[in-house]
Design a binder for these strands. Structure first.
Lengths: 158, 158
DNA sequence: TCATCTGTAACAAGATAGGTTACGTATCTT
DNA sequence: AAGATACGTAACCTATCTTGTTACAGATGA
C-alpha cells in the first residue's frame, strides 16, 4: 500500500477552495487531486462531519468552506480524517507475554511516542492559513492564474 | 498489511541470543517470534551482512552474536534491516507542479523530518544492552527460567 | 421531468510485510 | 559415501490498508 496521503490532499484542497473556488463539485476537486470523485466525497465526509466544510446535494451543489483557514489546524484535519496511523513500524504483537519482548516494545514505544508527540504538536500549531501564506511567498507575481489553470486544464480534459 | 515489526523482532531475538542461547537455529528463533524459519533467515540476513550476527550452515550450524549488545544501537539494526519507511503518511505525489501542493508538502515534510530526526536520534543513543537492562529490571527474581521456558515450550510444541 | 450532485455500498487494484513450499548447498556425523 | 541438519533463496500466496472504480439511491434546481 502506498503511504496515506489524505492529510496532504485535504490541505491542498482547502487552500484551493479558499483561493480559487467559492464552491466546487467533487468532480472538480477530483481533477485537482488527480483522483476520483468518490474518493473526494469519502475523504471530505470527515471534514464535513467536523464542520470544516459544507456539502450541498443536487443541482448547483458541491463543497464549500465552513470556516476560515486560520481557524483550522493541521491537527484538526488529521483528526477529521480519522487519525490514521502515523508510523509504519511497530511491535509484532499487541500484548506479548515474553518479558524481553515487553522491554523491547516499551523502549521502542517510548521513542515512537516522543516522535508522535512532536509531530502532533507541530500539527496543532500550524494552521492551513500558514501554509497558504507559504504558498503566497513561493508564488512569483502573476503566477496565480497560471497555477490556477493547471487544475482548470485538468478539469477540462477530464 | 500490519505495521512493519522487523526492528522489534530483531531486537527481541538479539537479546534472547545473548541471554539464553549461544547458538540458535532459524527454527528455534522462528518459534520465539511465532513465525517461520524462512522469515527469520530473510530478516537476519541484513544483520549478518552488517556483521552483528554470524550464520553457519550445515549440521550444528545456526546463528550467533558477532558483537556485544552494548556495541549495537537501535539505529544499527534499523539500518541493517534496510531502513524501511518510518511514517505511514506522506504526500500524494513526489514532485507536484502545483505550487499549493508544494507548499503543503513542504510544511508537512518539515514536521515529518523533525519527528524523524528525533526518532533516529533516540535510535542512535539506545543500545540493545540498554533494553536488556530494562528487561533485567522488569524481571522478578527467578523468573528468568520461567521466561526462557515460554520459548522453549513453543519450540517443543512446534 | 430531467440533468446535476452528494452519499454509499461493493468490489478491484496496488503496494508491502509476512507466511509457506520447494529446492539448492554446505557441513557434521556415522 | 550417505544421511541428517541448517542456511540461502526463489517463487508464490496471504493479509491489510489506501486508493480507484462502478453502480445506484436520494436530493435539488431548472
Amino acid at each position: 500500500m502506498r503511504r496515506d496521503s489524505r492529510l496532504s490532499r485535504m490541505l491542498h484542497v482547502l487552500i484551493h477552495m479558499d483561493r480559487h473556488y467559492k464552491r466546487a463539485t467533487s468532480e472538480t476537486i477530483s481533477k485537482m487531486l488527480g483522483t476520483n470523485a468518490v474518493v473526494v466525497r469519502r475523504t471530505m465526509a470527515g471534514l464535513r462531519d467536523f464542520g470544516y466544510v459544507r456539502s450541498e446535494q443536487g443541482h448547483g451543489g458541491g463543497w464549500e468552506l465552513a470556516r476560515d483557514l486560520d481557524q483550522i489546524t493541521l491537527l484538526d484535519i488529521y483528526e477529521a480524517i480519522g487519525k490514521p496511523p502515523l508510523f509504519a513500524i511497530g511491535p509484532s504483537v499487541d500484548q506479548p507475554e515474553c518479558l524481553v519482548e515487553q522491554a523491547v516494545d516499551a523502549k521502542l514505544g517510548d521513542a515512537l511516542k516522543e516522535a508522535e508527540a512532536l509531530l502532533l504538536e507541530r500539527f496543532r500549531t500550524v494552521t492551513i492559513a500558514d501554509i497558504a501564506a507559504d504558498f503566497d511567498r513561493r508564488m512569483p507575481e502573476g503566477q496565480c492564474n497560471i497555477h490556477g489553470n493547471i487544475h482548470a486544464e485538468q478539469s477540462a480534459s477530464g
